[in-house]
Design a protein around this nucleic acid. Structure first.
Lengths: 283, 283
DNA sequence: TGCTTTGTGTAATAGTTGCTTCATGTCTCG
DNA sequence: CGAGACATGAAGCAACTATTACACAAAGCA
């Protein structure tokens, strides 16, 4: 490899071999790179409540000759960082794709928060928090927003069904639907027939229909009790899921805000279950 | 006077009273402020071909107590210079749930695009575009980013496998894995054991491992050939998937950029299939 | 020429520096 | 319970630090 490793990479490489105190050192120097560039061994040691030798050992464990070598590396990378901002503008050709993706993403999210006003979120969140029936989430198969919504609501309350996969399976699920249920339909241009039909079916059963789509011409709005529209920008050749995910996350936060006790209780129980099941990497 | 003078101002103020050698010192430190921040008296002295005391006298003539005071001033101004572009990320959101969600979302996406530089995307996109083997996407069950990545890559090229669901099903899928394949692992704090294990297994089979996670301490980085870190902000009681989705969408765009002919061809064929199958709402 | 004044370097000093060695404590595993 | 591996801090050391005091040299002025 031509270029030398960055500090974060060296920390990652040392990985498991780092002791608890050394991890504190790593966390400190990754958060604030100036402490290494400017500080002495004694100063770093005091910041993490350790002794000098611990800092030196940390440096050698990262592959440096000693603290001095580590410090010089930190100073070099800091100098680089100072020079960067100017030539960051005129970058390599791939930077075009990158810059375009960056501005599309940020603009798209900002636009979404401009289009969907707090009143919209209120009207969407209210049925989701209040209903005692089931919640059906209808969207195209790989809708990231639907997944975020389903995952979030499932933690907050029971009875959340994410309709996905084959139409046959959807039909079977739908057998349980009844009036008083709430439907959240999420779909955008080239509206999928299955999403539209399922939403219409559930509307016909008397469910409250909430719709997140991309404009008044969407076939979903016809069946909607409450709907909101967000523009979908392109990132490269694809539609961006970002604005929809942003709105859905805000919606989930609002629903959680309306179900404070119930939500925290459920979260705690889920957390306890996950821990005993050993879901996570650290005990 | 509220703020202390900058170095240039102090040099100007000292003005005529500076001796010839001291002027050389002034010229050097104004041209490259890092020599003061990082260097010792002896180093600065050598750079201008003078002796130590001359440097110290220069510092006192500028109004400092000694070289140490001058150096601290240089370090402070350098720190300021470093913080400026990024400190807007750290501002604490205030206000209601909606405003908090809004600023968390936008700040999180911006921060993600600051943390993951174009070089990172290059290194991640290259194997995804170049490999002739399979692509395995490993993430927790409801990772929106993984879904976006899988959905995007599946359109661009064949052999994309999104590992999700029960561990038994994963194990069955893994039977096909071999050296030359590419793994993309996406997971964040409270790293799921299944994700870590699956990634390690695939790494052991000789696959190239790309990792998107939240820092050098992630257990995923140990097995990674290439990794990038993004911070995960909270939206309400949940972690936000937004930054990860943003990065993944940019990554997909970059891969598409590298596979122009192959990608458009596949997209056209898929489009034709969807139409004949009547997937979409309008004929 | 003498006598300051000014600019500079040399030498000495007290304090720090990073680093090594060694001893203490704290786990783990048989 | 005890043996070993391990993480950590205390003490000490050689090298270096900034700073000071002093010596020397050149220039200005009488």
């Amino acid at each position: 490899m031509s270029r030398s490793l960055t500090l974060a990479e060296r920390v990652a490489e040392a990985g498991e071999r780092l002791t608890p105190i050394e991890r504190r050192v790593a966390a400190l120097v990754l958060e604030d790179s100036t402490v290494l560039a400017f500080g002495t061994v004694a100063e770093v040691a005091e910041r993490v409540d350790a002794s000098g030798p611990t800092i030196v050992r940390f440096a050698t464990k990262l592959g440096f000759d000693g603290y001095s070598a580590l410090q010089q590396e930190a100073r070099c990378s800091l100098s680089e960082q100072l020079k960067r901002p100017t030539d960051r503008i005129r970058r390599r050709p791939t930077g075009d794709v990158w810059q375009q993706a960056r501005s599309s993403a940020i603009d798209g999210v900002e636009a979404a928060f401009d289009q969907v006003v707090p009143e919209d979120i209120d009207r969407l969140a209210e049925p989701l928090a209040a209903t005692t029936g089931r919640i059906w989430i209808v969207a195209s198969e790989n809708s990231a927003a639907a997944q975020v919504l389903a995952g979030g609501l499932r933690v907050l309350r029971p009875g959340v069904h994410h309709l996905t996969g084959s139409t046959a399976a959807i039909a079977a699920d739908l057998a349980d639907a009844e009036a008083g249920d709430v439907v959240v339909a999420i779909d955008f241009f080239r509206y999928e027939r299955a999403v539209v039909r399922t939403t219409e079916t559930l509307a016909g059963l008397g469910a409250t229909v909430l719709v997140i789509t991309d404009g008044a011409f969407s076939p979903l709005t016809a069946a909607a009790d409450v709907w909101c529209a967000i523009d979908v920008p392109a990132i490269g050749p694809f539609d961006s899921a970002l604005p929809a995910v942003a709105v859905v996350e805000a919606l989930v936060a609002e629903v959680a805000h309306r179900l404070p006790s119930q939500a925290t209780e459920r979260i705690d129980r889920a957390e306890a279950l996950w821990s005993t099941e050993g879901i996570f990497h650290d005990d």
